[in-house]
Simulated assay, not measured.
Amino acid sequence: MALQYEIIGTTLPVAVIKLAPGDRIYSSSGGMSWMSQTVEMETNTGGGLGKMFKRALTGESLFIVDYYVNQGEGEIAFAAEFPGKILALSLADGQQMIVQKDSFMCAEKSVDLDMHFRKRLGAGLFGGEGFILQKLTGPGLAFVNFDGEILEKTLAPGELLRVDTGHVAMMEPTVDFDVQMVRGFKNILLGGEGLFLATLRGPGKVWLQTMPMSKLANRIAQFMPQVGGRGESGGTNISLGQLFGGE
């Protein structure tokens, strides 16, 4: 029987998953939001030291946590950590998806989570999301969380799509990913798009995210007030917690 789930919410969604005896899902440690009392948890290395090291490189925790029920049914939820969308990926046996790092939420135990290196050094140095991505391999159901809204595009063989770095959320492994320098001196100097653009070449599907968190953070930082204080810079930033009454 297929795993039963529901994705609830819009801006800050949550994936609520129903567990029956025999179902087993896992996530990074600290990823769970709430669960019913019938759900058991088991923390483990998820495949030994090698797997732990790979997860650390992709921004995940060293350990993973398995969730299951022994009797009856249970419910467990994984909430988004930032405004965006949760996608449920139903992967066939051997089917793979390449996703941006830190996007993994949870998956059935049959789904393998591994790191994925970009083939070209330029893509890693200037791609906006680092050199390492995550690779999910089926069979099974996996949940991923991306920034903002999600747009899906299907690229024909040889079709090229240029994307501002950071907007690439997920792709099929058949899509070739690279980063190229923007052409033209005026475009580089005055275009406002930076020196590099990501290039995606088909065939295959790609998923683009509309609001990379790096851009959102930079935008918010522009509106953060500063007050005189200690430090070499002559001022200190006021945190969001201070603005809203926190310490």
Rank of each mutant, 00 (worst) to 15 (best):
D178S: 15
T11Q: 12
V65W: 01
I86L: 04
P83C: 10
M181F: 03
I86S: 06
C106K: 03
D93T: 12
G140H: 11
G148Q: 11
P225E: 07
K101G: 07
F196N: 05
P225T: 09
K135W: 01
Y67N: 09
Q226Y: 06
L197A: 10
T10N: 15
G31V: 05
K54I: 00
R120H: 15
F146I: 15
M1T: 12
I188A: 05
K215L: 08
G246D: 10
M170P: 03
D66Y: 14
A2E: 12
G229D: 03
W207D: 05
F196V: 04
A169G: 11
G9M: 10
K85M: 10
M213Q: 14
Q226A: 13
A107G: 00
M1Q: 13
A77E: 02
N44E: 05
I86F: 05
S29I: 11
S90A: 12
E42I: 00
V179F: 08
F146P: 10
I220F: 09
F78P: 07
M105I: 15
G84N: 01
G191T: 04
M171N: 11
T137L: 00
S103R: 05
G202T: 01
K18D: 13
E152F: 04
G245P: 09
N44C: 11
V69Y: 09
V175A: 07
I17C: 04
K51R: 09
V16E: 14
G138I: 11
I8M: 03
N70W: 00
L125I: 11
N44Q: 08
M224V: 14
K18W: 01
V65I: 12
V227S: 05
Q37K: 14
S239R: 12
I8Y: 02
K205D: 05
D164K: 09
P83M: 10
S36E: 07
N237G: 10
T137H: 01
L121R: 13
F143Y: 10
E159T: 01
I76E: 07
A92L: 13
A77I: 02
E60R: 08
A142T: 04
Q222A: 11
A169M: 07
L57N: 03
R183L: 06
L189F: 10
P21K: 05
V144W: 04
F196D: 00
L87N: 06
L136P: 02
Q95C: 10
V144H: 08
G202I: 07
R118C: 02
D112Y: 00
I150D: 03
K215N: 01
G74L: 03
L113Y: 06
K119E: 14
Q95D: 15
N70Q: 13
E60N: 14
L216G: 02
Q4P: 00
G94Y: 00
E193P: 03
L151V: 05
L87A: 12
